[in-house]
Each structure stands twice: as C-alpha cells, then as structure tokens.
C-alpha cells in the first residue's frame, strides 16, 4: 500500500499536503493500538486504570501472538507495536515480515518491482495468533495478497488485521480489527505514511490527488 506511493513530486502535484497525524500523534496512536492488542490477546486481559496489564495474566495469549508486517511500512510498524507491548507488559512478542509482491493480482498492470524480505519468527506461525500489520488500508487488495501469502507460510490459529490508517474505499470484503485512525477520504486523495525507519520522520499526510485518474484497485493510498 504505502510501498509504491512516493510519486515524484513535481511542482504541479497535489496542493498543500495536510498533516493528518504529527509525530506525537503517530506515537500516541501506536501506543493505543498496542493497548488494544494487549486487551484482545492477553489471557484474561484485565487492563488496570493506569493502562498496565495485571502481571499475573499478562502471559499466555501474548506469547502466541505474531505481528507480521507487510513491507515496506508495515514492517517497522509491527516492530514498534511489539516493542510497545513489551514495554507495557514485559512480554516478548514475535515479529515477522511477509512480502506480498509475488502474490499481487496487479503485477501485469503495474510491472515488476524489487522484492522485500520475508522473515518469520523461528517458531513459525503454525497454530499461532497472527496479526497482519500495514500502514494504510485502502482497497483491501494488499491484505488479500497477504492472506494468500500467509496460507503458503503456515496455518495460524487466527489472523487479524491492524492498520495505522483506514481511509475507506474497500474493493473487497475485508475490514481491519485494529485501526489507529479512520480517515474519510475521496478516492482522488492520497494518504502518505512516513515513518522514521523508512522516511526519516513520523507523519501522516493527506494530499489532493493529481489530475490523472488512478485506476481502481491500483496501489495508491
């Protein structure tokens, strides 16, 4: 999703990018998502008033959790979520990445591109609780490709989806289980997620679309 959408910026392209989330907002949203994951996956997961998990019940479900990031930007997001969960609960959470390029249904239209790594935890994903992590949920096609890739990588007990931004315009019956921020957008707009690991800074921008019409299902944001 975020992967290709760094269109060469020409003077005519999109007018004033609006900042949707600042660096501080991104950190807060990631923290909140980490708490939501803890709540869902920690066994008996009671969350105290201070937001910390009762240490007695913090283990179990969380140790079965695997956060699988979809490159490019889903991968650092998954690592951040795992780090925050570990900071809040003291439980280590496995992280992986699954490159979906070879599973895309739009290769013919968009052309080939360099592959990103696929790395799974040593314990694999069989019978574990997988949460796919991506930056932006748009058409849902990346997620479909990721589900196909997961099927070839193992057989998780369950698969859920966490995204930093849900911008709507789904083309497939797919929804996210954990959403950092819902953003109503028009199809012509672009949502760009920048992360320190990949882009040097944390921010989420919305820009007006450029004049040319993007074909439905293409991998824009």
């Amino acid at each position: 999703m975020a992967r290709s959408t760094e269109p060469a910026r020409s003077p005519s392209s999109g007018s004033n990018p609006g900042v949707l989330l600042s660096a501080a907002d991104v950190a807060r949203v990631v923290d909140r998502m980490a708490h939501q994951l803890i709540e869902r996956y920690a066994r008996g997961g009671g969350v105290g008033d201070d937001g910390a998990i009762d240490p007695g019940s913090a283990d179990g479900g969380l140790s079965d959790l695997v956060l699988v990031g979809i490159p490019t930007r889903g991968a650092p997001l998954a690592r951040r979520l795992a780090a925050r969960i570990e900071a809040f609960t003291g439980t280590h959470v496995d992280v992986g990445t699954a490159d979906i390029t070879l599973y895309r249904d739009d290769l013919r239209r968009r052309g080939v591109r360099a592959l990103e790594p696929t790395i799974l935890p040593d314990a694999g994903i069989d019978d574990r609780l997988v949460v796919l992590v991506d930056d932006v949920l748009f058409s849902g096609r990346s997620v479909r490709a990721a589900l196909d890739a997961l099927r070839d990588l193992g057989r998780p007990r369950s698969v859920q989806l966490a995204v930093l931004v849900d911008r709507g315009h789904r083309e497939l019956p797919i929804r996210a289980d954990f959403v950092g921020k819902n953003v109503p957008t028009s199809r012509s707009q672009q949502v760009r997620v920048h992360l320190t690991e990949t882009d040097g800074a944390d921010e989420v921008l919305v820009t007006d679309g450029r004049p040319e019409v993007r074909a439905a299902g293409e991998e824009s944001q």
Binding site: D99, L102, Y103, L107, L115, E116, P117, T118, I119, D148, D152, L153
Partner: peptide, 16 residues
C-alpha cells in the same frame, strides 16, 4: 529474497 521467502516452507510455490 525468493530463496529466503521459500526457505523451510512446505509449499514451495508462488502464484506470481
């Protein structure tokens, strides 16, 4: 990348 993605997999097949 292909090597790494297919290493240790039961299904050594991609739909590409």
């Amino acid at each position: 990348q292909i090597d790494q993605a297919l290493a240790g997999r039961e299904v050594k097949k991609l739909p590409t």
